[in-house]
Design a protein around this nucleic acid. Sequence first.
DNA 1: TCGATATTTCTAGAATCATGGAAATATCAA
DNA 2: TTGATATTTCCATGATTCTAGAAATATCGA
Lengths: 107, 107
Amino acid sequence: MEISSALLALNALSQETRLLVFKKLVEFGVSGVNAGDLARELNVPANTLSFHLAHLERAGLVKSTRQGRNINYCFNRAQMNELIGFLNENCCVLEENIDCINNTKTC
Amino acid sequence: MEISSALLALNALSQETRLLVFKKLVEFGVSGVNAGDLARELNVPANTLSFHLAHLERAGLVKSTRQGRNINYCFNRAQMNELIGFLNENCCVLEENIDCINNTKTC
DNA sequence: TCGATATTTCTAGAATCATGGAAATATCAA
DNA sequence: TTGATATTTCCATGATTCTAGAAATATCGA
């Protein structure tokens, strides 16, 4: 994952309402939930929720599909895995590698 | 990890300069680096860097220790692990658990 | 003590963001 | 076609954030 995509994803998740939205979408699983039910569930005005869902979608973290009058939102597991992968690769040092990074051991 | 701490950490990492700062600190490893060298390395004015380092420190992602006139900054592996743990627990669905979440199987 | 160096805090301006009311769009059911 | 429902887009406002110059603080060496 590119750093620009990671920034988009981190940015999407770094806001309280959006993190709660995403968390809730994960709870709903791969079948997802429509915008109205989600708004009721989270007690957020429909237009505010729409704003945040669009933000999450731009970051690739959720996918939407229209189903009649409703629009179904579902989290995107692949992108979340990409983000966790990015953090592990770029922002994390595994215990067993600390010696290598400090050049006290060659790995 | 509490959701409020996760938000702080995500927020800290969701800004380009700070993500680059943190990435660089990870490269420097557990011995860390002082603010001046980091500023030169990243081409960021000292006061701007100071602002971002304070932000990362508030989020628990970096630790600082004064060493004479310099202040040494080092990433905090534990907090990063906490964050990745939070994302895995709250924002991620493992492939093998998808059936449970959709109630098509009991786990 | 004094001057030099390292870093932070103060400050102000520009930019971006979150929120929710109101209007617009899309779809359905009759 | 009309009215109802679901959702988004438009818009204005208040709040937050990033940036970097200038001033303040801390430490060292002489």
